[in-house]
């Protein structure tokens, strides 16, 4: 019989998330001691601004991990998108253009980003599903390729001089305090939640990630599932590229290299299995909060430089993985 949804069972089933929440609370408490400016509105808005880029990537990577693969090309896609869009804006929407052209340009920018993301993701997906290239190698290679393409477009320099009104429009704070990035992130999260939980895509994705041979025999289209996962991931990366472009109002070929690693670590931290078959949207979101809190925390700690955050992530991730290993093993032994 189905287990009753009592509070005790709920806690047992979701105990991993509770650990994450506790970790987040501990970090917040630590921040209270470290810096006065952490719990201010300005800081929270700034944190929300920063987190949207890699959070979008993390959501996308979550899908690829669940499919039994990974996406290491998110940063390449983002940068390439930013470069292409920057070139477009500089040519077609210079500072003195009319409002009409600007509006059209903004719409074109968004559509272009979606198309670029879809194309990149499909390419990734095809390499992995049709050619059988291991996902790590395939996306590492395409990351190199997209970054290279980005350099071709920018000719290796930083492209600047983007229409200021565009920048304003894409860095606006909705309702005065919600950065547009967060709104986009929320929309993306809702979209992903819908795709994974409301359509059959989510459950199929988990099955394909667990045993693609069995799903093949069962009639599930493995190739399409994998391509779709990568398409969504690359589209989210492209959108992140648009946000990065606006926020930095310029485009360079190597922005945010560390985002890729960060995004993957966030997913694992949040409970998405590295071997595939499992995803966790709340876990990933919690992971994003934790990582952002750490990033800001490290930057506010006197005497710490920004590289320290890598240290903290790594230690945190490895500790969580090891603790979780002992936690699940203990459960099996105690029976």
């Amino acid at each position: 019989m189905k287990e009753k949804t009592t509070f005790k069972n709920f806690v047992k089933k979701n105990s991993y998330y509770l650990y994450l929440i506790i970790a987040l609370i501990i970090i917040f408490i630590a921040m209270a001691f470290i810096s006065d400016s952490f719990f201010t509105v300005t800081n929270f808005i700034s944190m929300m601004e920063q987190m949207s880029d890699y959070a979008l990537m993390a959501l996308g990577i979550m899908l690829c991990l669940c499919a039994g693969g990974v996406d290491l090309s998110t940063v390449g896609v983002a940068n390439m998108t930013a470069a292409i869009l920057a070139t477009y804006l500089i040519r077609f929407a210079p500072d003195d253009c009319s409002t009409g052209i600007l509006v059209i340009s903004c719409i074109v920018v968004v559509i272009l980003a979606l198309i670029i993301g879809a194309v990149c993701g499909t390419f990734n997906g095809l390499l992995i599903s049709k050619l059988g290239i291991p996902p790590m190698l395939a996306t590492m290679s395409t990351n190199y390729l997209y970054t290279g393409l980005c350099m071709v477009i920018t000719k290796g320099v930083s492209l600047s001089g983007i229409n200021e009104r565009f920048v304003e429009a894409f860095t606006v704070n909705i309702f005065g305090f919600l950065p547009i990035g967060i709104v986009v992130l929320i929309l993306a999260a809702v979209f992903i939640w819908y795709e994974l939980k409301k359509t059959s895509f989510g459950v199929k994705l988990c099955m394909v990630g667990t045993n693609p041979t069995a799903t093949y025999f069962a009639g599930i289209n493995n190739d399409w599932i994998k391509i779709k996962a990568h398409m969504i991931s690359s589209i989210l990366s492209a959108v992140a590229g648009v946000l990065m472009l606006a926020r930095l109002s310029s485009s360079r070929a190597d922005y945010g290299k560390a985002y890729s690693t960060q995004a993957i670590l966030i997913c694992i931290l949040g409970g998405t299995a590295a071997i595939g078959g499992k995803f966790s949207i709340p876990g990933t979101i919690l992971g994003v909060f934790i990582v952002q809190a750490i990033t800001t925390g490290v930057s506010m700690t006197p005497g710490a430089n920004s590289y320290m955050k890598n240290l903290v992530y790594a230690v945190l991730l490895l500790s969580v993985m090891i603790l979780d290993y002992y936690r699940t093993n203990r459960k099996v032994k105690a029976k």
Binding site: T199, S200, V203, K204, C206, M207, N211, T213, A214, F217
Partner: peptide, 28 residues
């Protein structure tokens, strides 16, 4: 290796070929 996703739930394995049948107005 060819018939089952061992780590997944029994009821998911039973419906592995027919997930789309369970998608209604409110989703799956």
């Amino acid at each position: 290796t060819e018939g089952l996703c061992m780590r997944r739930a029994i009821y998911h394995n039973i419906h592995m070929s027919t997930f789309d049948k369970f998608v209604g107005k409110n989703g799956i």
